[in-house]
């Protein structure tokens, strides 16, 4: 009886401090190199909208040129300060000013991650069989 080969899945956590000092180009290069290694990234914090757009552009430039690379799945979940009291919002703003990164970004290769379903307060990662 043939042995069934088990496939591994690597999730890599990246603290914000690891990309904080990088410029946009270097950040995207770093994230894409991890995704190209078939790993799922859990990034503390989030990219700027322009960086997200550049991430999509660079991803598209690679599809068709890198073997078996079909793109990425991407989702960011933010902390919600809308329901906080005035003092809560003040503390929240202060924490943001001090550099605390309350968002989480998930980036995975589309060959592994079928879909990331995103609701305001939860993320559901659907994997490929």
């Amino acid at each position: 009886m043939a042995k069934k080969k088990l496939k591994g899945l690597t999730i890599q956590f990246i603290p914000y401090t690891e990309i904080e000092t990088l410029d946009s180009g270097a950040r995207i290069k770093k994230l894409l190199s991890i995704v190209l290694g078939n790993r799922i990234i859990i990034l503390q914090g989030k990219l700027h909208p322009e960086e997200e757009a550049r991430l999509i552009e660079d991803t598209m430039a690679m599809v068709g040129h890198v073997k078996k690379f079909k793109g990425i799945e991407l989702a960011t979940i933010n902390s919600n300060s809308d329901n906080l009291s005035f003092f809560g919002r003040f503390k929240h703003s202060l924490a943001r000013a001090l550099g605390a990164q309350e968002s989480i970004t998930i980036i995975g290769p589309a060959s592994i991650v079928r879909e990331i379903k995103r609701d305001p307060r939860k993320i559901e990662i659907l994997m490929k069989k």
Binding site: I56, A61, V63, G64, K70, I72, E73, L74, A110
Partner: peptide
Amino acid sequence: TKIDYEDFMRFKMNKKDAQKRAKEATQGII
């Protein structure tokens, strides 16, 4: 954020046309 030519083949498109469409689609997004 992703383009897979095999998705186009589900619409009865042949592989060559699906790959061409995928290539054009990636450039279109850029």
